[in-house]
Design a protein around this nucleic acid. Sequence first.
DNA 1: ATAATATACTAACGTATGTTAGCGAAATAA
DNA 2: TTATTTCGCTAACATACGTTAGTATATTAT
Lengths: 197, 197
Amino acid sequence: MARIKTEKNISRKEVIVAKAASLFREKGFKAASMRDLAEAVGVEAASLYNHIKSKTELLHELCFSVANRFMHNIDEIERENSSSLEKIEKLLRFHINEMIHHYEEVYVSDREWKHLADPYLSNYQNQRRIYRKRFASIIETGIREKEIKKIDAPTAVLIMLHAISGIESWHRSTQRISAAELEENMITILAGGLTNK
Amino acid sequence: MARIKTEKNISRKEVIVAKAASLFREKGFKAASMRDLAEAVGVEAASLYNHIKSKTELLHELCFSVANRFMHNIDEIERENSSSLEKIEKLLRFHINEMIHHYEEVYVSDREWKHLADPYLSNYQNQRRIYRKRFASIIETGIREKEIKKIDAPTAVLIMLHAISGIESWHRSTQRISAAELEENMITILAGGLTNK
DNA sequence: ATAATATACTAACGTATGTTAGCGAAATAA
DNA sequence: TTATTTCGCTAACATACGTTAGTATATTAT
């Protein structure tokens, strides 16, 4: 009888969620079926329901675990005593590294959250809005203190966040530079576009 | 008996394709059903098949009409006698305006192309690859001529293209700056991140 | 060893989906 | 007007989907 393999301290549910991330990334949430997922896990579809409540629950788990990580990070950065530009650079580096090392989760929560059902959906959308506002107000402080060009802060946020989601292409490209090089290039271009001189 | 309304020089098929763009943008290709589309058009689902071959054909039409526009544009720009930086700025402005004025089509072709079926899929992927290579080599020329910072050109391309796809958020935001302001802000940040000094 | 729990299986359900067949009505051409 | 073509309708199909019920088999606790 097939059995879901687990390593120490990893529950069977976590194995399923991880495979779901990979599958949802590859095919999209709607196009990925529970039978696909079952096959990836090495089990029959019905067996998954001994560990999870529903397909959407998998999406909840992914979206909110990612959202929480980003929220905690911006909490910390806001508390720091550093210049706006330094704060922005730290935010960017966090985003970049999340996208490099937790690619599938982050990608899925970024692209597939539309398929969440209320109340999770509105909750998630709210968190997103708030996060962007907080990001934008760091930029606005930087503008007031002349560290940063006079630009529309929400537009800058939108550029930064989406630019980083482009790391998706890096993951799938055949000839790719190292993760460290990628990080430095992105910081150079993105921070360079903000700096006042 | 219901009938698809057409204005002069717009075929019924074109009406369907346009509504499909809007629906695929809103729900995603897989989650948007032919019955949804039929309702949006004001007709029964089966009636759609008097005008189109299949659901995927709708996606083909959208993806390749967008891809062709971008290809023709880069053709023209490559032929010009201008600096690399000017060429890049023109490319960016074209992308930005496409994203502003043909939002739904462009968005769909950017996010939903995965659901194309071969041979369209590989064809589309090829075009994308080629487009990015051409974009990157304009940047590389700029670097050689010291107009542009020493950066990894493919990374720069990936940043630019994804940053612009962030205009999606602009469309859906409640308080938004004008299209012209958006364009200028994006150019300031993106071109500013490349320029050598 | 026995009991209890966790996990997997088979079978099946109701529903939604893309699409086709066949017929009638409306628009257009003769 | 009549003939032809275009277009929309109802009905139905096969398939795929998420999920549940009920049962059997491992694993763990006593």
